[in-house]
Write a protein that binds this DNA or RNA. Sequence first.
RNA 1: GGAGGGAUGGCCGAGUGGACGAAGGCAACGGUCUUGAAAACCGUAGUGGGCGCAAGCCCACCGGGGGUUCGAAUCCCUCUCCCUCCGCCA
Length: 424
Amino acid sequence: MLDIRLFREQPDLVRTALANRQMDPSVVDEVIALDKRRRALVRRVEDLKAQRNAASKEIGRTKDAEERAKKIAAMRAVSDEIKQLDAELRELEARLHSVLATIPNIPDPRVPIGKDENDNVVVKQVGEPQEFPFKPLPHWEIGTKLGIIDFERGVKLSGTRFYILKGMGARLERALIAWMLDLHRSQGYTEIYPPFMVKEAAVFASGQLPKFRDNLYHDAEEDFWWVPTAEVPLTAMHMDEILEGETLPRYYTAYTPCFRREKMSAGRDVRGIKRGHQFDKVEMYIYSLPEESDAALEKMLADAEATLAGLGLTYRVVQLCTGDLGFAARITYDLEVWAPGSGEWLEVSSVSNVGDFQARRANIRYRPEGGGKPRFLHTLNGSGLGLPRTMIAVLENYQQADGSVVIPEALRPYLGGAEVIKPQ
RNA sequence: GGAGGGAUGGCCGAGUGGACGAAGGCAACGGUCUUGAAAACCGUAGUGGGCGCAAGCCCACCGGGGGUUCGAAUCCCUCUCCCUCCGCCA
């Protein structure tokens, strides 16, 4: 959520931001008009309330019954008007809120301006796409041949975009999760195990609602929403809190499954395990002082990179342009890992500074050290990493001519010392 | 699922229609006293919004949302959460 003052004081900043995001800037005028009307109404209604308060006190002091009745009668009209204006005001504020709730964050000035993902900028690449003495297979073939991914039974159970991991496949998934959590713990993050279903307010806080309702699963009877990412509970965890300044920054990491309808991606990436309705992810999250959030972004990016480096994978860092930036983000770096079998760079992590955007939605503030008014803090989120695509990269990069897959060294302690996955 | 009891400021806790933004205590902060500290004493302290250059004035907030009333922490409705007991359950 953007600060309403931005619309009053720097409307062009917001218009430009929306235009750079390839969106219609006319909502800005709508917000300004609503805000103006709201303030005029507030003034009127508060004026009447002040009148009423004064009169009520007087009535309380009036002993003479007749005079009292006269005063009460006079106030009845005022009270009725207040009631009516209050109702109007409520409606107006609800509208203003719902319009504001759908306006994305303002991109950081350093973000390259661009139309879509084609204008993203590759910042750096670490490693080179590996040369194979044989034709590397895509993971769906490797997984099937090894007997560690069962697509057919996944579909039998749950339909398209579901699969079963079996034997070393399931263990590899678990090993990756455990290893990532341990790595982030060593980087200073506190491990969190959150609920996987949360209430609507929690999903609103991180920005997935109301705009991305179509991509979320929720219970039809109760207010339960399946988390599309751990970012949701990690944001909402501190909803409506004022944190002490000296406890910042706070570093959190969490594993959760993520549930997404993928309505917008219908027909895309249907092959393999690249895009499922349910997938695992280890997330990093930082609550930061505003003045430190730039540095926090650098740390988080480095921490995410360490995950890929630790697995010995070739990857590149891509800075998203304004047109490809997520709703809540001010600035985002994607990490893309090379998948030689599929022959593509796969997005395994998205590291973003969202500034105070989520903090405003979630009403999370901090009290500056030494006292003072509470202020909104900054939040950052980043995957470290998305599991299925990491799994793809591991399988495709570590595949051998004989069809086996060598296990990255870092993971071996998590797999009872096993060094290779052979057909089972 | 059934029955009952609760929710008040950072914390504890009083308050059942009229100067209550809310007694009292604890904690916090500033000061007096002290060589220093403690104790004691004095004082300051919430959040959001509107108007204003400012000083400041006003409005709202006693779990959330509605309502009754000239006036609500207090009465009514509703929702949420917590506690106790019973039932069921991994």
